[in-house]
Design a protein around this nucleic acid. Structure first.
Lengths: 216, 216
DNA sequence: AAGTGGTCTAGACCACACA
DNA sequence: GTGTGGTCTAGACCACTTA
């Protein structure tokens, strides 16, 4: 039950015949997932049941939807070679006018529109002719030698209208959750600038935050 | 510089005359803040400069604004005693019709409207007559013996209109980032149900996510 | 092959909560 | 005062990356 105490770390260590540091490492993972929380001098307690994670993770749309209990699918609206404009070149750290692969996709959950996505990838990373209409984009990037490792995200709120609203099957002027991200490899190579507009009536972020003792 | 390698954990341990586990604990904190990241078998690297944290923290509006370089202020629009409706009672774990303190506040940054906030607190936690117009709400709750420790948040996108749009000084039909939260004490006592609408043109969340080796 | 982070041990002392 | 989590030691072996 939420807020019930776990056995103490020393008890768990004895019970499972491991050292206390090992128990702490395991509990630390659960804490970072928001499943349990610690109170110094008191104990470790079970978190609330309906929170998935304490912190957002780097997940693909496919993984995200599966975790939410939906069956994901995608429809590529367009895939073009374009010259990077000011915004795209800044975010991807390339020169204005450099060639990029621009992909627009409608993302569906259980067959209904969930999000509309714009992705820009430097042509040097994934040229248009190598892009496959089906299959995970991250998998294609990985195959090209660009494993996505880190993503810097910005979440805000936007109004959708026109063509985009039509694709999402919502009235013009509806609210959408806008997630903009720049993804990079281990080595800091910027491989993707993407913007996803999630239907506000179908999608939200949930997470738990704690006033930690590790506060600085 | 971002993506430069740190000295190895063994080197740091020797340099600072501490054990390697201590170095790892310190690096672990930096990782959780998104300042550095690890690659097994390779090294520890400096993260990008413009990301503040990897995970959202439990911060008050005041702390949040200060961290963003704004001077925060507040204006209480109303403070009333109300009976909990279905939604409020569900979220706060009380009975429908139970008395609550309902506070509406306009939150300003550098004197301009940033967010509009609705907060419901059980009257058993903070009765209307004890509510002070000025001063931090969390500080008042703490003084009443209810230290806010954990908060479960949901982020979505909404349209603001009417009175609320007027307070925020934006046109009716503008987008806003909606953060709904239920806050509790150490012991799981639910003390606050709040909803904040941030002006989309002035506010966004930024964070970094990593495909961790601790992925499950 | 050498170096790195990931995990683990079997203890120890400290700061804090709680009765 | 007793029990809890927080921190720390001084090693060890494993899995992985890199040259």
């Amino acid at each position: 039950m939420p807020h019930d105490a776990l056995p103490s770390e020393r008890d768990l260590a004895e019970q499972f015949k491991v050292s206390r540091m090992t128990v702490r490492a395991a509990i630390g993972k659960l804490v970072s997932e928001g499943r349990v929380y610690n109170i110094q001098g008191s104990g470790t307690y079970v978190g609330s049941k309906d929170i998935f994670s304490k912190a957002p993770r780097l997940t693909s749309f496919t993984e995200d939807m599966a975790a939410r209990g939906f069956t994901p699918s995608s429809k590529v609206i367009s895939a073009r070679r374009v010259a990077a404009d000011r915004l795209v070149s800044q975010r991807l750290g390339i020169d204005e006018g450099d060639q990029c692969t621009h992909i627009r996709r409608l993302r569906l959950a259980d067959g209904d529109p969930m999000a509309f996505e714009d992705v820009y990838i430097p042509a040097t990373v994934l040229p248009l002719e190598d892009f496959q209409l089906s299959g995970s984009l991250y998998a294609q990037l990985a195959q090209a030698g660009y494993d996505v490792f880190r993503s810097e995200q910005e979440v805000t709120s936007v109004i959708v209208e026109g063509e985009e609203a039509a694709f999402l099957d919502v009235p013009t002027g509806s609210a959408a959750l806008c997630v903009t991200r720049v993804s990079s490899t281990h080595h800091g190579k910027l491989v993707e600038f993407g913007r996803t507009h999630y239907r506000a009536d179908r999608y939200s972020f949930r997470f738990a935050v704690t006033r930690e003792s590790s506060e600085r």
